[in-house]
Amino acid sequence: MRLATTDLTASILEGATIYGPGDEKVGSVSHLHGSGRAAQAIIDVGGFLRIGAKPVAVRLSELDFMRDEDGDVHAVTNWTKGRLKEMPEHVDP
């Protein structure tokens, strides 16, 4: 079930697994920045248990968030792990 816009909050999205093309796990949501259409998800890409992961910023509009039958939140995107790793590293202000 796709999440409504009102469900795109930090408390719901943080920790969500992100899947790319072919159901490849590409990362997980670390935290959010901004609100509305300008909001960004900071995705930890690579690493193991967040150790050595590279944080990158992706607009929420580029992610399709949903709940599975168990109620767990995840997202799908057209971004591959390789393309995300090529993005500039996000640094919190």
Score class of each variant (00 low, 15 high):
Leu60Arg: 07
Pro21Gly: 13
Ala57Arg: 03
Glu86Asp: 15
Val56Ser: 02
Asp44Cys: 02
Glu14Gly: 04
Ile51Cys: 00
Thr77Phe: 02
Arg2Gly: 08
His33Ile: 15
Gly82Trp: 08
Asp23Lys: 14
Ile12Lys: 13
Arg50Gly: 00
Gly46Pro: 01
Ala41Thr: 07
His31Arg: 13
Leu32Ala: 10
Ile42Asp: 02
Thr9His: 07
Ala57Gln: 03
Ala53Trp: 06
Lys81Gln: 05
Pro21Asn: 15
Asp70Leu: 12
Ala10Cys: 03
Ser30Ile: 05
Trp79Phe: 06
Ile43Tyr: 04
Arg83Leu: 14
Asp7Ala: 14
Ala75His: 07
Phe48Asn: 00
Ile42Tyr: 12
Leu3Thr: 10
Asp92Ile: 11
Gln40Thr: 05
Thr80Glu: 03
Leu63Glu: 05
Leu60Thr: 10
Gly15Cys: 08
Ser30Pro: 04
Ile51Gly: 00
His33Asp: 15
Arg83Met: 11
Gly71Thr: 06
Val91Leu: 06
Thr80Arg: 04
Ala38Arg: 05
Val56His: 00
Arg67Lys: 15
Gly46His: 01
His31Asn: 11
Asp68Gly: 14
Asp64Trp: 02
Thr5Cys: 10
Gly27Pro: 09
Asp64Asn: 08
Val45Thr: 02
Pro88Met: 03
Gly47Arg: 00
Trp79Thr: 05
Ala57Gly: 03
Ser28Asn: 08
Ala75Tyr: 08
Ala16Arg: 08
Leu84Arg: 10
Gly20Phe: 10
